[in-house]
């Protein structure tokens, strides 16, 4: 279970990303966080990863206070979360294969496991033929898929997907959403942030709407009306 307890993030007086947000997400849930650009969606996900610190409030993950964790312990928590970043965040000096394998290496997995799992995942996302390419040789959609593969590879408890379809064409978008729904069916909590009404409305699960840093609606089987 994830709990945001009265969380605020204030960058400066004129730039308030989140205002007193309280949000509870049960495990195995599929939640879409929606809102226009600058509504605070990315900030919400960044705070959960501790990529940034909240100005006020606490965040809990399965009863453990994420916001109080020591920095040199954060990697244990992060290994339980697979993140698909808006800007992919691929390692430019590593190949497709190595980018995906890195998440496993960092988690201390055995070489045999890595040799088995990585090709499988690359097959699923349709990039088996490009495993030796470097990120700069890939299209936006391909990079996005590598990011998805890396997020999935460690079979995390939670998937954070920050605008994962932002750079994809409709066909690829459908594929990614289908994949996320399937992962969720297998028991993984998914938190998806998006500003795309079509995408959200096709899912038909819980929708949390953010506006100017505040939660303005939170509905099971919600819709996002712009």
């Amino acid at each position: 279970m994830i709990l945001f307890d009265k969380v605020s993030k204030i960058y400066s007086k004129d730039s308030v990303a989140l205002k007193n947000v309280t949000l509870k997400i049960n495990s195995k849930e599929f939640v879409s966080v929606v809102g226009s650009s600058g509504a605070g969606k990315s900030t919400l996900l960044k705070l959960l990863m501790r990529e940034e610190e909240p100005t006020k409030g606490k965040i809990f993950l399965d009863g453990v206070e994420v916001t109080a964790m020591r920095k040199n312990q954060l990697h244990h928590m992060r290994r339980r979360i697979g993140t698909i970043f808006q800007d992919y965040k691929l390692l430019p000096a590593k190949t497709v294969y190595e980018n995906v394998a890195f998440a496993m290496e960092a988690a201390g997995r055995h070489d045999e496991e890595i040799a088995e799992d990585v090709p499988q995942v690359l097959e699923i996302i349709g990039l088996a033929g490009k495993k030796d390419s470097f990120p700069h040789q890939l299209s936006g959609g391909e990079k996005q898929r590598v990011a998805v593969a890396r997020a999935l590879i460690n079979r995390p408890d939670i998937i954070l997907a920050d605008e994962p379809t932002g750079n994809l064409d409709p066909v690829n978008t459908k594929e990614v959403i289908k994949l996320l729904l399937k992962i969720n069916d297998l028991g993984t909590t998914v938190i998806l942030s998006s500003h795309d009404a079509n995408v959200i409305n096709s899912i038909g699960r819980r929708v949390v709407v953010l506006e100017k840093g505040e939660v303005i609606s939170d509905e099971e089987k919600g819709k996002y009306i712009v």
């Binding site: 992060r78 000096a93 890195f102 988690a107």
Partner: peptide, 18 residues
């Protein structure tokens, strides 16, 4: 020149020493 990579490694769950 690798500062962004260092960030990414941490975010995908690498320990500091790794």
């Amino acid at each position: 020149t690798m500062r962004e990579e260092i960030n990414i490694m941490r975010l995908v769950g690498a320990a500091n020493w790794f």
